[in-house]
Amino acid sequence: MMLSRVASSLYWIGRYLERAENVTRLLLVTSEVAVEVEGFDDALAQSQWDELLQGLSSPGREALEFSPESGLALPYYRWLLLDADNPVSVRSSLARARDNARSVREVLTREVFTDLNECHHDLERLRRRGLRDPALARSELGKTHRAVIGILGSIEHTLSRDQGWTFMKLGEAMERTRRTLLVLHAKLPALDSRAERRDLPLFYAGWRGLLRSVASLENYRAMHGGALKPEQVVRFLLLEPSAPRSVLCGVNRLRAYLDRLPGGEAVSEADRILGRLHAALSYDDDGIAERESSSFAAEVADQLTTAHEAIARQYFPA
């Protein structure tokens, strides 16, 4: 039993922390790929950043100021790590996670609150100091990524597995699954078209980048070896139940968390949506193989949005 308001805040803490972790990682990975090809193929470097913004549904490039000193990467670092005007920046996500945490502090452990609060203050200090060069940005980004993972560790190791924890994990799984889908939707069209250009090293760099974007390169290699086969990569990210960031794994987690919560009319709708997705992803390989993967990803993301709305209707205050 818990207050609806508290359940809602915990769910959103789960979502914002996962979002902060995702954006940090995507920023790290994108910068590595983009910095490497910058100079060699400017258009390709630019397209990496464009895909990143698209995959994050981040507001656009017009707001950014580029200069010869800043290079291509630094304005993106500032915009996506620290800018308070960008709703998907790491800073914005952490600030919202912290606002929620402050409003439900009584149900969090000291460890969770302090880690989150400290990370927020560190970013605020960084924002006041400013990011002067890409190397500093890169190292601060790495630090922030470890700090966010530290918060997730505190949640894992100090919170009791009660309803509150379940709502937080529900939010986390929802966000993570959607993020994987959005990355697939944003990156697949370009990756496919590059195959036409027969530019093999870049072609594989692109697929490697995709796997790294969703923290799955090592996992993929452990299962399928070092050679990247595009079709296999897509199947892996959609259908591999043991890969923590695959869509099927996410759907299974969402179902398991919902199972732990009290039932109700609205939430049975979410159950049905997730059940259908589970069946399709588990048993309908052929059906999925026929689909165009990018639009399939967008469609699944929409269904998750509907499931989210049903969950909110059931448990959260109007």
Binding site: M1, M2, L3, S4, R5, A7, F167, L261, P262, P317
Partner: peptide, 14 residues
Amino acid sequence: DLVVENNHVYMRTT
């Protein structure tokens, strides 16, 4: 978070 019904106080929970 609180609501009064029939002169009893309740909280809105999940």
